[in-house]
């Protein structure tokens, strides 16, 4: 039986730190973020608007605001069984792998489950983001 898609609800303090890493972006058209059986290239944090998950082109669920989608898959280099689509006028933050490394320096200030998750990401040996 398919599990529901994993997303992480983030607290205000985590969001404050994420905001320091870059500006949000508002999609002016509905866009596919990633497709079924793909690994998201970045994690998406929904600020406002609508982000829906689909399977076989059928809508399965939507993500609540202040949630991070694709974080587990990006960190674990895993594929997602669901596709994600963002609706028009939706605002998101993005976390790529390099930004996640930057967040590691602030991991004491993050939510416990978020901090635990991002520490699984193996930093590059000879090229660091520090």
């Amino acid at each position: 039986m398919d599990r529901k898609p994993q997303f992480l609800k983030l607290s205000k303090k985590s969001l404050q730190l994420i905001k320091k890493l870059g500006n949000p972006f508002t999609y002016t058209v509905s866009t596919d973020l990633f497709y079924e059986n793909q690994t998201p290239i970045v994690a998406y944090i929904l600020l406002e608007g609508e982000l829906i998950l689909t399977k076989n082109r059928r809508e399965i669920s939507s993500i609540p605001p202040c949630s991070a989608l694709g974080l587990v898959e990006l960190i674990g280099n895993k594929t997602c069984q669901y596709a994600a689509k963002v609706k028009k006028d939706t605002t998101l933050y993005f976390l790529d792998k390099s930004s996640i490394f930057e967040l590691l320096t602030f991991k004491d200030k993050l939510d416990q489950d978020f901090a635990q998750l991002i520490t699984q990401l193996e930093p590059p040996l000879c090229i660091t983001c520090q």
Partner: peptide, 21 residues
């Protein structure tokens, strides 16, 4: 560091006007 994906025919990598990653 890389993320590898297979895109099927018709699937988009990025869309005009969107944020570059």
């Amino acid at each position: 560091h890389k993320v590898t994906n297979t895109y099927k025919k018709g699937q988009t990598l990025f869309v005009q006007g969107n944020h570059p990653f």
